[in-house]
């Protein structure tokens, strides 16, 4: 399996604040990578740097063999990188189907083909009963699922999920775990930020931990839960007792 994404020394500064500090990361094709860390650790900023929302101040990002450090968001999407947002960003006044169609048009020109792909994606995430609902009226859980469908419709190689399980009910979380596995099995590599540890441990092949913008640990889920520094800065001492 080849390396799909390689970030080296990615640094993002906002005025005096270093939000992401020299982070190195390699993602292999077909992996699910979990990204954890306390609030304000720079997880979302790291996402934004990779996807081109806030280009990195220093460092470089290579995706699929090409240097994408200075590319913009839409170019990255064309290259095969799709994301969801921590705070859902729906096209509120459009229907669920149209929302996903916007994604499908990334690779298509024809309206009817885009509609077909969008339908498939909505069925894939299990929302066929809400195909024509206005998205602003949907629940947060549905909006998050829809955002995944929308991202998948762009036919990405790498999917970046930013806290897709936040605010969901336990049943919904279970469904989402299944969904993420299904997405991976369809050949999409996944990088996900998540606070729901149980789900993350179940899903991730590898977990990386950010704290104050710095990568403090990397390893398999079980290695991470044993890591002193991670327990101290993020998981908390309760985790020690559990194990």
């Amino acid at each position: 399996m080849g390396i799909l994404l390689k970030a080296s020394k990615v640094t993002k500064k906002f005025a005096g604040l270093t939000a992401v500090n020299s982070v190195d990361l390699e993602i292999n094709e077909g992996e699910i990578i979990g990204l954890i860390g306390p609030n304000g650790a720079g997880k979302t900023t790291f996402f934004n740097s990779i996807t081109g929302f806030y280009p990195a101040t220093y460092g470089s990002v290579t995706f699929d063999g090409n240097d994408i450090t200075h590319r913009t968001t839409y170019q990255n999407c064309k290259a095969g990188m799709a994301r969801t947002f921590q705070i859902v960003q729906p096209f509120g006044q459009l229907t669920a189907l149209e929302n996903v169609m916007v994604g499908a048009f990334n690779r298509l020109e024809s309206y009817s083909e885009a509609e077909k792909i969008a339908r498939e994606m909505i069925i894939f995430v299990g929302m066929e009963d809400k195909m024509h609902a206005i998205v602003a009226d949907l629940t947060i859980g549905d909006q998050r699922k829809l955002e995944m469908a929308r991202a998948l419709a762009t036919k990405p190689k790498l999917l970046l999920l930013d806290e897709v399980m936040a605010g969901l009910t336990p049943t919904e979380i279970e469904e989402t775990v299944e969904l993420v596995l299904k997405i991976r099995d369809s050949g999409v590599t996944i990088l996900m930020i998540e606070h729901i540890m149980a789900a993350l441990m179940k899903l991730s092949d590898r977990v990386i931990v950010l704290d104050h913008g710095t990568l403090i640990a990397e390893g398999t889920p079980s290695e991470i839960t044993q890591n002193e520094r991670v327990i101290e800065s993020y998981l908390g001492s309760a985790y020690k007792k559990q194990d």
Partner: peptide, 19 residues
């Protein structure tokens, strides 16, 4: 549809490959 997507949410539109 791209026009309307930009009106509804420009950040999301960009993330979905819209110039």
């Amino acid at each position: 549809l791209y026009f309307v997507a930009i009106r509804e949410n420009e950040d999301a539109a960009k993330a979905l490959g819209i110039n």
